[in-house]
Amino acid sequence: MNQTKTPSRRYFLGSALRATAAGTLAIGSGSALASIPSSRGLSFNHLHTNERISLVYAVGDNFLPQSITRLNTFLRDHYSGIVGTMDPGLFDLLYRVRQALGTSQSFDVISGYRSPVTNNTLRNTRGGGVAKKSLHMEGKAIDVRLPGVPLAELRDAAKSLEGGGVGYYPDSQFVHIDTGRVRSW
């Protein structure tokens, strides 16, 4: 008598994690990835390009290379189109901010990666407010807001995590979050 054993849920999840770590699980199966308890995902609306993205970027201790590449492209310098390399730790920090606020709302992106040329141009044309050694140029900073969440609450949540720098810009309606040293302004 030939018995076929049905794989257990634990076996299935283990296989999915191994495939993910190997980069063989397609990004298109985001709902499958999102169902894995240790998955982390984010959603963004880019206010300058009118693009939207929602994806799982990590499972357990593993960042998903295809997702990180898609996020790098999404958060490119919107002035020049240059794609930088974002710090995956920044995505974890944003994920933790959303958890602290108890929301799954998409972040509105004002600025992600910024090329050195763009940064210098903005410094010379904006009358200040753009740092000479901005962490945007290193892919370690993002300017965001969360619709439906008061800006001061977003700032306070980011500060409470002590994951890096937090800048508060109520007149421009955004919070700067970075993975540099812990500081606030």
Results as ranks from 00 to 15, higher is better:
40 R>M: 04
92 D>H: 11
99 Q>M: 13
28 G>M: 05
31 S>A: 08
92 D>A: 14
49 T>R: 02
74 F>V: 08
62 N>P: 03
50 N>I: 05
30 G>R: 00
73 T>C: 07
33 L>G: 05
20 T>D: 08
16 A>C: 13
76 R>W: 10
38 S>R: 13
23 G>Q: 12
26 A>T: 11
44 F>C: 02
37 P>L: 08
31 S>G: 02
95 Y>T: 00
36 I>L: 15
76 R>H: 15
18 R>A: 13
16 A>F: 14
88 P>W: 07
46 H>I: 01
89 G>E: 11
103 T>I: 12
88 P>H: 12
71 L>A: 03
93 L>D: 01
67 S>Q: 13
24 T>C: 07
52 R>I: 04
34 A>E: 14
96 R>K: 08
102 G>N: 07
77 D>V: 05
22 A>D: 11
19 A>H: 09
96 R>E: 13
101 L>N: 01
54 S>L: 00
102 G>R: 03
37 P>E: 06
102 G>Q: 05
106 S>C: 09
89 G>W: 10
49 T>M: 03
90 L>V: 10
42 L>G: 01
89 G>Q: 13
98 R>P: 05
106 S>N: 04
28 G>W: 02
22 A>I: 01
50 N>R: 14
26 A>F: 01
82 I>D: 04
45 N>V: 09
100 A>E: 12
86 M>F: 02
97 V>Y: 04
28 G>S: 12
71 L>T: 03
26 A>H: 03
60 G>Y: 15
22 A>Q: 11
83 V>R: 03
32 A>V: 15
38 S>L: 06
74 F>D: 09
34 A>N: 06
45 N>Y: 10
98 R>V: 04
93 L>V: 06
72 N>Y: 00
92 D>P: 11
93 L>M: 03
61 D>M: 07
16 A>K: 09
38 S>E: 15
89 G>T: 09
97 V>Q: 07
22 A>L: 11
46 H>N: 15
84 G>I: 08
84 G>V: 11
48 H>G: 03
71 L>V: 10
21 A>L: 00
70 R>A: 15
83 V>C: 00
98 R>G: 14
67 S>W: 00
32 A>C: 07
65 P>H: 04
46 H>V: 03
24 T>P: 02
84 G>M: 03
57 Y>C: 00
16 A>Y: 09
91 F>A: 11
54 S>E: 07
72 N>C: 01
101 L>Y: 08
35 S>V: 05
54 S>T: 11
75 L>Y: 01
21 A>T: 04
64 L>I: 15
47 L>Y: 01
74 F>G: 06
28 G>K: 12
36 I>R: 00
46 H>A: 00
104 S>I: 12
65 P>L: 11
92 D>R: 15
71 L>R: 04
64 L>F: 11
45 N>L: 07
76 R>M: 12
25 L>H: 01
33 L>Y: 00
35 S>H: 10
99 Q>K: 13
28 G>E: 14
55 L>I: 10
79 Y>L: 09
52 R>V: 01
21 A>Q: 04
